[in-house]
Structure formats: C-alpha cells, structure tokens
C-alpha cells in the first residue's frame, strides 16, 4: 500500500469497513510509516474537534411561539 492509497482509506478504516486483507495492509503500512501515522492522528483530532463545536439554540421568541402553537393546537 502506498501513502497516497492509505490516506483515501482512513474513514473506511475508522468505520471498521475495510475487508480483512485491506485492513491488514492498512495496519502494516501504519506500523512502518510515520507520515501516515501522523496523518491518521490529525484525522482523528479533526473528527474529535468537530464534535466539540459550540451549540446554537433556538431564540426565546421562537421557543415561545412554538409552545403557544402546541397549546393552541386543537385536539
């Protein structure tokens, strides 16, 4: 496996979606290549940070309007 091939398989690897032979080749490459090891680490770090992005919230106005719509809905 080349580095150029490795970098295209990272998401499939992280999802556990590689077939057995490809996964073995991926891991073998990883063990020998500090550049790809770093690439994979940076990919993981990127994913982790995406999960930390701040939340937005509904404006109080919209929230009030929705609660009112719920209250007034004919049942």
């Amino acid at each position: 496996m080349t580095c150029a091939e490795f970098v295209e398989l990272v998401t499939a690897f992280l999802d556990g979606a590689l077939d057995e032979a490809t996964e073995r080749a991926f891991v073998d490459h990883l063990a020998e290549c500090p550049g790809c090891e770093r690439y994979l680490d940076q990919f993981r770090l990127t994913i982790a940070e995406l999960g930390e992005l701040p939340e937005s919230s509904l404006s109080g106005e919209t929230r009030d309007r929705l609660l009112e719509a719920f209250r007034d809905f004919p049942r």
């Binding site: 080349t2 580095c3 290549c33 550049g35 770093r38 940076q42 940070e49 995406l50 930390e52 992005l53």
Partner: peptide, 23 residues
C-alpha cells in the same frame, strides 16, 4: 518510492483558534 510522502505532514501546534478554524 512512488505514491509515498515527499515530506511527512508537519506536526500541528494548535492554539486557541483551533475550534474556530474547524468551524
């Protein structure tokens, strides 16, 4: 070594801007 890194990716020295860069 065709298909292998010319130069490895540089290590990152992240700062307080990181979250904004990602966003």
């Amino acid at each position: 070594y065709p298909g292998h890194w010319r130069d490895f990716p540089e290590p990152w020295v992240l700062d307080g801007e990181f979250r904004q860069v990602v966003g």
